[in-house]
C-alpha cells in the first residue's frame, strides 16, 4: 500500500467514526425525547399528593427510557395505584409501558366499580388484543408484571390483585404481604386464569409499598449475589418508621451501596404511600 492509499484509508476511517458519533448522538437525543414523553405520561407528584400527602416514588431506570411505570387514578369513591414492570427494558419496555398506562386509564374510567382482579383480567384482554396474542407458538409473549390496588376512600378498604408482583403493608413496624398470582398480564403459557382479588382493611398511618423486581434482583454486595426479597422486606420494615422522604433516600443509598461497581440489571421502581384516615 503506498502513502496515498494510507492517507485515503485514514480519511475514510475518520469519516466513519464521525458518522457513527453523529448517529449515536442523534439516537441519544431521540431517546432523551422519548424519556421526556414517558415522563409526561407518568402521573405527577401532585397526582399522588392529592391522595397521599406522604408518599415517595423511587424510580431509577436502567436505560434512558424505562420498562417500569407507576400509575394513579381516582374516581369519586376510590383511588387506584399500580406499579408495573413490562417485558424487557429500554425502548421495547417503554412502548409496553405506554400501552399499559393507556389501557389502565381506559379501563379504570370506563368500567366503574371493577375489583382489582377484574381490572387485571380486562387489562390482559386489552394487551392480548393489542399484541394479537392467541396462543399460537410463534407469536410474541410480551406482557406486564403488575401490582394493583384500589382503595375505597370512604372506608379504607383496599383490594389488591397482582401479576407476579406482591404488595406490602406496614402497620406499627409489622409487614403484611399480599401475594400476587403467578401469571403475567398477557398471554399465559397454557391457559389464562382469573386474577384473584384480596381484601385488606387499612387503618390510619398504614404504609403501602408497591414495587417491581429490580431492587431485589440486583446483583452486588460482598459476594456479588442478588439482594433478594427477605432482606428487601426487612429493609422496608426497617425504614417504615422514618419520615417518608428519608425512606426514599435510604432505599437509594442501600441500592447504590449494594450495587457498587456492578452494572444495574433492571429498572428499579418502588412507590410508598401513607394512608390517612379521613
Amino acid at each position: 500500500m503506498n502513502l496515498a492509499d494510507n492517507i485515503q484509508t485514514k480519511k475514510l476511517l475518520q469519516l466513519s467514526a464521525e458518522n457513527f458519533e453523529r448517529q449515536q448522538n442523534e439516537l441519544i437525543e431521540s431517546l432523551k425525547y422519548a424519556s421526556y414523553i414517558q415522563q409526561v405520561l407518568l402521573p405527577s407528584d401532585a397526582d399522588f399528593r392529592r391522595h397521599f400527602a406522604e408518599h415517595f416514588i423511587y424510580h431509577q431506570p436502567r436505560d434512558i427510557v424505562s420498562g417500569d411505570f407507576y400509575y394513579i387514578s381516582y374516581t369519586r369513591e376510590s383511588v387506584a395505584i399500580a406499579v408495573a414492570d413490562c417485558t424487557g427494558h429500554g425502548v421495547p419496555g417503554a412502548f409496553m409501558s405506554i400501552l399499559g398506562i393507556t389501557f389502565l386509564n381506559e379501563i379504570f374510567h370506563n368500567f366503574a366499580g371493577l375489583s382489582a382482579g377484574s381490572m387485571l383480567n380486562l387489562l390482559r384482554e386489552y394487551i392480548m388484543k393489542a399484541l394479537c396474542q392467541t396462543g399460537e407458538d410463534d407469536e410474541q409473549k410480551d406482557g406486564l408484571d403488575m401490582a394493583l390496588c384500589i382503595i375505597n376512600k370512604e372506608t379504607g378498604s383496599l383490594n389488591f390483585s397482582g401479576a407476579f408482583n406482591p404488595l406490602y403493608i406496614v402497620r406499627d413496624h409489622e409487614l403484611t404481604e399480599l401475594q400476587g398470582d403467578k401469571m403475567p398480564v398477557g398471554i399465559a403459557p397454557e391457559e389464562e386464569k382469573s386474577f384473584t382479588t384480596q381484601h385488606f382493611e387499612l387503618m390510619d398511618h398504614d404504609l403501602i409499598y408497591l414495587f417491581t423486581d429490580g431492587f431485589a434482583d440486583q446483583f452486588g454486595g460482598p459476594s456479588g449475589r442478588k439482594f433478594k426479597y427477605q432482606p428487601f422486606r426487612d429493609l422496608i420494615t426497617d425504614i417504615s418508621s422514618l419520615p417518608i422522604q428519608q425512606q426514599k433516600h435510604r432505599l437509594l443509598d442501600t441500592f447504590n451501596d449494594w450495587k457498587g461497581n456492578l452494572k444495574q440489571l433492571d429498572d428499579v421502581l418502588i412507590v410508598g404511600c401513607r394512608y390517612k384516615d379521613k
Binding site: 384482554e125 394487551i127 393489542a130 394479537c132 396474542q133 392467541t134 391457559e191
Partner: peptide
C-alpha cells in the same frame, strides 16, 4: 363458549 384465546375487550 368460544374456545379461543384471542383478547376480547
Amino acid at each position: 363458549v368460544l374456545q379461543q384465546r384471542a383478547g376480547i375487550t
